Simulated assay, not measured.
Amino acid sequence: MDVAQRITRLLDEHDPAGDPQEWLGARYDAGLAWVWYPEGLGGLGLSRDVQAEVDRALAGTPQPTAVQGIGLGMAAPTILAFGTDEQRKRFLRPLWTGEEIWCQLFSEPGAGSDLATLATRAVRDGDEWIVDGQKVWTSGAHHSRWAILVTRTDPDVPKHRGLTYFVCDMHAPGVEVRPLRQITGEAEFNEVFLTGVRLADDLRLGQVGDGWRVAQTTLMNERVAIGGARVRRGMLEVMVEAWRERPENRTHDLHQRLLALYVESEVTRLSGARLREQLAAGQPGPEGSGMKLSFAELNQALSGLEQEFTRDLSYDDWSFRRSDTVDFYGREAGYRYLRAKGNSIEGGTSEILRNIVSERVLGLPSEPRIDKDVPWKDLPR
C-alpha cells in the first residue's frame, strides 16, 4: 500500500472531526505521523521528503498540539536515536497524540551556556537512580508528564564525560515546579527542583556516562526545530501589514531597512529549505545553530523596527499568568518586542551558537579550553 492509499484509507475509516487524540492515534498507527520513522513507530521507513506530501493531504485535520513542541522537536528524535525498543513503543505514540506532554530539564543556575558543567547528581541505588539538583528555564514543566533530563553520574572525570541522560517522571515524588515570571508577565518557564527523585534504570536513554552524546542529538534537533522550521514570516508579515496601514509614518530610511530585513528573511527561508533537505538524508548537524541564530536576530530586528515605525510602545498586560504555549508573534506590538528578547537566549544563546558555527561549520580554530581534561569535581564553581 503506497502513501496515497494509506491517506485515503485513514480518511475513509476515521473522522477528522471527531476526537483529536483518537484521530492522531489513527494517523500514527497508519505510519503517517513521521514517515521517516520505522514502521510501527509512527512511520514507514521512507524518505523525510515524503512528509510534505502527507502534510499537504492532511492539512485541515487535527494536528499535534502546539504545547508539545519540545516533545515533538527534541524528545521524539532523541528517543528514536537512543531509546530501547520498549522505550520507543512506550513513549512515542502518546507523545505524538498529545496524551503525554514533555519538557526539557537541561539548564541549571550555574550551567546554561556551558551545559556540560551541570551539577544535578544521579547516584545509582540498585535498579534505580536517586536524583538531586535544580534545573531552570524549563518551558511547560507545569503541564508536563515527562521530561528529558541530563545528570552527572561521575564527578571524577572531565565535565563532558561523566553525564547520563534519563527520561524523568514529572509526577514522581520529589519533583517540584515553580514558575519564573518573564518581562511580559507570563510564566512560560519554570525552575524545577529535584530532591531524592527515584528513577528506574529502564528510564535511562543511552549508556551510563554517554549523556553528552545523547544531549547533542537533542540540542541539534532543538535548534533545527526553532530555526529550521518552515518560515511562517510571522514577524515580517506583522511589520509589512503595519507598513501598509500607516503610510504617513513611512520614511526612506525605514523603507530601506524593511527591504534589507525582507532579503534576510528570504535568505533564512531558503536556507531552512536546504537544511530540511540535508535532514532528509541523515541526522541534524551544526548548521541548525546558524538557522536558530538567524531566527533570533530577524525577530528582534523586525520587532524593533515595528516599534520605531508605529511609535506604539504600549503594553499594559503585566498581570502574572501561566502560558500554555510559546507565542513569538502574538498580541500587541509591545508584547512582540519584549518577547523577542528571549529569542537570543532560548535554545542556545547567540554567543554560543556563533562559536558552534565558526568552529564546526566554518572550521575556524577553537577557543582555548583550559578545563577540557580537568575532572568536574576540581572545577571552580
Rank of each mutant, 00 (worst) to 15 (best):
Q5R: 10
I7A: 02
L11G: 02
E13A: 14
L24A: 01
L32S: 04
W36G: 03
L41G: 07
G45I: 03
R48A: 12
P62R: 07
Q63Y: 11
T65N: 13
A66H: 03
Q68G: 15
G71F: 06
L72P: 03
I79V: 14
L80D: 14
E86V: 15
W96E: 05
W102I: 13
W102A: 06
F106G: 03
S107C: 08
S107V: 12
E108I: 07
G110I: 01
L115F: 12
T120L: 03
V123N: 04
E128L: 04
K135W: 07
K135R: 11
W146T: 10
T151C: 15
P155Y: 10
D156I: 04
V157A: 08
C168F: 14
C168Q: 13
D169Y: 11
H171W: 01
G174C: 01
E176N: 02
R178W: 01
P179I: 10
Q182H: 04
E186Y: 12
F189P: 01
V192K: 11
G196D: 05
G196F: 06
R198D: 01
T217R: 07
E222C: 12
V224W: 05
V224D: 00
E237Q: 08
V240W: 03
V240T: 13
R250N: 11
T251M: 01
L259F: 10
L261A: 09
S265N: 15
T268H: 12
L275P: 00
E277K: 03
G282N: 13
P286K: 04
P286N: 03
S289I: 00
K292L: 13
L293D: 11
L293N: 07
S294W: 03
S294A: 15
F295V: 10
L298K: 03
L302I: 14
L305S: 05
Q307T: 13
Q307L: 13
D312F: 01
L313R: 05
S319G: 05
R321F: 10
R321I: 06
R322E: 15
D327A: 10
G330N: 04
G330L: 04
G348K: 14
L353V: 00
R354N: 02
R354Q: 08
E359Y: 02
V361M: 08
G363W: 06
G363I: 04
E367V: 08
I370K: 02
K372C: 02
D373C: 08
V374D: 01
D378W: 04
P380K: 06
